[in-house]
Simulated scan of single mutants.
Amino acid sequence: MDLARRLFMAQAARITAGAAFVPLASVAQAGINDQPPRRDGDAAKRYAMLIDLRQCIGCQACTVSCHIENEAPLGKFRTIVSQYEVENEETGDLAQFMLPRLCNHCDNPPCVPVCPVQATFQREDGIVVVDADRCVGCAYCVQACPYDARFINDRTQVADKCTFCAHRLEAGLLPACVESCVGGARIIGDIMDPDSQISRMIEEHRDELKVLQPDKNTVPHVFYLGMDERFIDRPQAAPGLWDVRDSAGAELGYEYGEH
């Protein structure tokens, strides 16, 4: 945790019917600027993910396996791989840039303090999760997330997001996206363990690692290796997979419409 702090300190969402049942007085009483105490998970660990963009081929295997593992509704995703066409500023040559995206499991998560019922909280091991039994679907956390990593699940009507597949980690398994990555681009592990693969890679590539939107001061724990500088902040571009059309040329637009 301290290592990550030293390294990296420097959508509009649809409001569901649940918001009608959250009066402003309740929000104030809940202490909207406070974070609930961490609970669950192993306090001796701090999970993080390193994504080696040099190995990502944009196959979307991670997107599909996550969708199946976590039973996300059609058109909603806990992780995606946005694909951009990048022009070389000197030669004009075009190339594809792949940007896997997911919840960043921040140490200073803006989604947590805005929850009026403290349904969103951070575990002892750093994983940010949603207590579906408490969530009222107000979507405050969806709007607060600077990474567009949350959505309201159409089926459950509560907030949904990547959890690093905490249920799999607790069973000694890798997250679905990591296990299915054909290029081995996703590495997850405990950064408190100096012998873990992710700790060794952080040490080896310390000066090359980047995080998304560092100016937000969220202290994200998804690190990127091989990141194009132009994509650290929200790029002025439209990922190609957003423009999905049928055989008649009509836009379908359901795949990544909210990402």
Rank of each mutant, 00 (worst) to 15 (best):
D2F: 00
L3Q: 12
R5A: 10
R6I: 10
M9L: 13
A10C: 05
Q11L: 09
A12E: 15
A12Q: 15
A13Y: 11
R14L: 10
R14E: 13
I15S: 07
P23H: 04
P23R: 03
L24K: 08
L24G: 04
S26W: 10
V27P: 01
Q29E: 15
G31L: 06
I32C: 02
D34P: 00
Q35L: 13
P36R: 05
R38Q: 14
R39K: 14
R39N: 09
R39W: 02
D40Q: 05
G41H: 05
D42C: 01
A43Q: 09
K45Y: 04
Q55N: 13
Q55I: 06
Q55F: 08
I57R: 11
A61T: 10
C62D: 01
I68G: 07
E69R: 11
P73G: 06
F77W: 11
I80L: 12
Q83R: 13
Y84G: 07
Y84A: 12
E87I: 07
E89R: 15
D93C: 03
D93M: 09
L102R: 14
H105F: 03
D107K: 06
P110S: 04
V112F: 07
V112G: 04
P113M: 10
V114I: 14
T120E: 12
R123T: 01
G126V: 05
V128I: 13
V129E: 00
V129A: 01
V130N: 06
D131C: 00
D131Q: 03
A132Q: 15
C135Q: 06
Q143S: 13
C145I: 01
A149N: 00
R150W: 10
R155D: 12
T156K: 15
V158P: 03
V158N: 04
C162E: 04
T163A: 08
T163N: 11
C165E: 02
A166P: 01
E170W: 03
E170N: 11
E170V: 06
A171L: 15
G172M: 02
P175S: 05
C177N: 03
V182M: 15
G183L: 04
R186G: 00
I188S: 08
D190I: 02
D195W: 03
Q197H: 08
I198V: 09
I198Y: 02
S199E: 05
H205T: 00
H205A: 03
R206E: 13
D207H: 07
D207A: 09
K210L: 10
V211L: 07
L212M: 12
Q213Y: 15
D215P: 07
K216Y: 12
K216D: 13
T218L: 12
P220Q: 11
F223R: 00
Y224C: 06
G226E: 00
R230L: 02
I232H: 06
R234S: 13
Q236G: 12
P239E: 09
P239W: 03
V244G: 04
R245V: 10
D246L: 03
A248G: 09
A248E: 11
E251A: 15
G257A: 14
E258H: 12
H259K: 12
H259P: 05
